[in-house]
Simulated assay, not measured.
Amino acid sequence: MSHWNRKLRFTFGMLAAASALLALGCGDDGAQPAAPGTGGGPGTPDVEVEVQTARDYPDLVEAVSSFGAVLLDNALYTYGGNLGGGEFAADNQSSAFRRLSLAPGGAWEDLGAVEHLESTALVAHGGLVIRVGGLRADNAAGEPEELISVTTVERYDPSTGKWQALPDMPEGRSGHGAVILGDRLYAVAGWELIGAGEFRTGGFMLDLSTPDAAWVPLPDPPFRLRSLGVAKRGDVIYAMGGVGDAQEFSSEVYTFDTKTETWAPGPELPSEIPIKGFGATACSDDEDLYVNYADGLFRLNEAGDGWEPAGELEFTRYFSPLICPGNGEVIVVGGRSTANNEITASVESVDVAQ
């Protein structure tokens, strides 16, 4: 049995314990409250108008988890992912690259086959989609595992439908996060999986405004984590949750100030179940930073020193990419159900307006 499989089985054992806690009432599905409307003009009686931010979107074409997703020009792009199947194999990894317009009546559009990867990251910059790293299985189902965290980075131009290579990262990277600040692309945390898997550097930065730029290592962080949520607020990058060297599940949060290039502890994630922030995903809009994990959806408070619930999901899930269109909406895409570990195709819009 590979080191990777031993880790995976231990993870799912902890998940069973979490499911038992949920059965005892730790999980709660509920309706989203409608926001009150405003009254009319002079001489017009006040009328309470129901405002519903949450919208209905079509499900994914197939159930998938641990995939890349990003919003660009009011369209949701998805790349690859884990299709289930119970083992790591090429056939259990998606090679689909798709797009969904978030305009009313939008439908999923197939943009062609890509490299079969999971645990990858997508970002948007300059009207382009950028894919950073990911985990590729080169073995067929039932064969010995051949797993590799790829070094490759590439960008997709929606106007031409073409991919273009960007500089490779110095190390392979999967289970990481990626964010854009201005023209700088950051790849944060994660690990390089070749055989047993190793935590190496804390990530890299690439200046997209500079021709022939090379990746620059980030200062060493005070953690070694993968399968975590990464997002920004202002000039600060947040690394949230995940799992570490000895399979210890984390609810810790760390911040990286991109101005001073220093790491610092942040406010710990609230967690009621054993797997804590494992499989967390995150996003931010112009105002707020959100994180989703097995305990639910949370928002960083205004002071930046704690977390507050940010709306109720139909069901809690993890390894579910999070999209922040703004205007009081967050979209949770695919992933694994916390209750039964089943992969879902659900695309859920959550009303997070206060």
Rank of each mutant, 00 (worst) to 15 (best):
M1P: 09
G13R: 12
A16Y: 10
A17N: 00
S19A: 11
L21C: 15
G27W: 10
G30W: 03
P33Y: 14
T38V: 09
T38C: 08
G39I: 08
P42N: 11
P42R: 12
P45C: 02
Q52A: 09
P58E: 12
S66C: 01
A69Q: 02
L72G: 04
T78Q: 05
Y79V: 01
A103D: 12
P104G: 11
A107N: 04
V114E: 00
E118Q: 13
V123I: 00
H125A: 10
G127M: 00
V132W: 00
A137M: 12
P144K: 12
V150N: 15
R155M: 06
P158K: 03
A165V: 10
A165C: 00
M169N: 04
E171Q: 14
G175T: 07
A178T: 02
D183A: 13
D183Y: 03
A187R: 00
V188G: 09
A196M: 11
G202H: 06
G202K: 10
M205H: 01
D207R: 09
P211L: 08
A214L: 13
W215E: 10
W215P: 11
V216I: 15
V216S: 15
L228K: 05
V230I: 08
V230A: 02
G234M: 07
D235L: 14
G244W: 07
E252V: 06
D257I: 13
T260N: 01
T262R: 13
G266K: 11
K276H: 15
G277F: 09
F278P: 00
C283L: 09
L289E: 07
Y290D: 10
V291H: 03
N292R: 00
Y293S: 03
D295K: 07
G296N: 05
G296R: 05
E302T: 08
D305G: 14
W307P: 06
W307C: 03
E308R: 03
F319L: 01
N327P: 01
V330A: 09
V330R: 01
I331M: 01
V332Q: 03
E342A: 14
E342M: 11
D351Q: 02
A353R: 15
